[in-house]
């Protein structure tokens, strides 16, 4: 199977297992997905359905307690499994970036924000001198709405609020200008105004640099604001994928329908009867 020219990242019939107490359990089952060039693809689904696992596999991360039992992951025509560790690291540094879930915990606690940026930027802009590095870091930090970017460079990650740490992690990923940015719950810790600011920033970046994004979130309303297409994941499978309007406004799969119906709303109390049932064997719908 060759990747279509407009697909940047293709996942074909992927099955991923975790080892638990000596046994392999599959967490992702026969999943196929493509992120097109320049698009923002949303990914939503139950907690524990395998979204972060998918993100990590897309990044080519290899871990001992995990195996790809079947399927392939191709980035821009390159099969990630054929790459050596060093090539993968270079790819991750330059063309692929991840904002991990709970990004704050991913910041090295012993490094000041300035050093974190210097480390990240040095790989990309080797000719930048110290002052330029700092200026670029400040620019990135103010883009994500961090107050006092200059003072921030001299502080340690734990000296920021949870949401601020998350935005620092986002800024660190953005400053690499990757071709594909994977965002795992990037705005869950942000207030509505800050979240809107980040959404606008991502939309601008997509327009100006045609950055592709995979945006993982539970927040369907936010996904609907930013995504071109949306994939709904359930129990390790994609049960529905299509244009944002089709999936969210005219959902066809029962799980999606329940998910949309039970979105918490300001104007009406939640109705427990609408909640999606958990972990049923899903049937798939592809638009």
């Amino acid at each position: 199977m060759t990747a279509a020219a407009h697909d940047l990242m293709t996942v074909a019939s992927l099955t991923v297992d975790y080892r638990q107490q000596g046994q392999w359990h599959s967490v992702i089952r026969d999943l196929s997905l493509a992120v097109r060039r320049g698009e923002i693809l949303g990914l939503a689904g139950e907690s524990g359905c395998g979204k972060s696992t998918l993100a990590s596999v897309l990044l080519g991360e290899r871990r001992g307690e995990r195996r790809l039992r079947a399927g392939s992951v191709q980035f821009d025509g390159i099969d990630l499994s054929t790459l050596r560790a060093r090539e993968l690291r270079r790819l991750r540094g330059v063309r692929l970036a991840l904002v991990p879930q709970n990004g704050g915990a991913s910041l090295t606690p012993t490094l000041r924000i300035g050093s974190l940026f210097a480390e990240t930027l040095r790989a990309h802009r080797p000719h930048m001198n110290k002052a330029e590095l700092a200026a670029e870091a400040r620019r990135q930090l103010s883009q994500v709405g961090l107050p006092d970017p200059t003072g921030a460079l001299a502080r340690f990650p734990h000296q920021f609020s949870g949401g601020q740490q998350q935005r620092i992690a986002l800024a660190l990923a953005l400053c690499r200008m990757p071709d594909l940015l994977i965002l795992d719950e990037p705005t869950t810790g942000q207030d509505a105004m800050t979240r809107r600011g980040i959404i606008d920033l991502l939309i601008r970046l997509r327009l100006s640099s045609r950055m592709s994004m995979l945006y993982v979130s539970h927040d369907l309303a936010t996904l609907s604001e930013i995504c071109d297409r949306i994939a709904i994941m359930h129990a390790g499978e994609i049960v529905e994928i299509g244009q944002m309007e089709d999936v969210l406004l005219r959902p066809r799969h029962p799980y999606t329908r329940a998910l949309v119906a039970s979105i918490p709303r300001l104007e009406a109390p939640p109705d427990p009867a609408l909640l999606p049932a958990s972990r049923r064997t899903p049937e798939r719908i592809t638009a």
């Binding site: 509505a192 979240r195 809107r196 959404i199 606008d200 939309i203 927040d219 369907l220 309303a221 936010t222 609907s224 604001e225 930013i226 944002m244 309007e245 969210l248 406004l249 979105i263 709303r265 300001l266």
Partner: peptide, 8 residues
Amino acid sequence: VPVFGRRR
């Protein structure tokens, strides 16, 4: 607060 179903 994001408006559900409306692209920004």
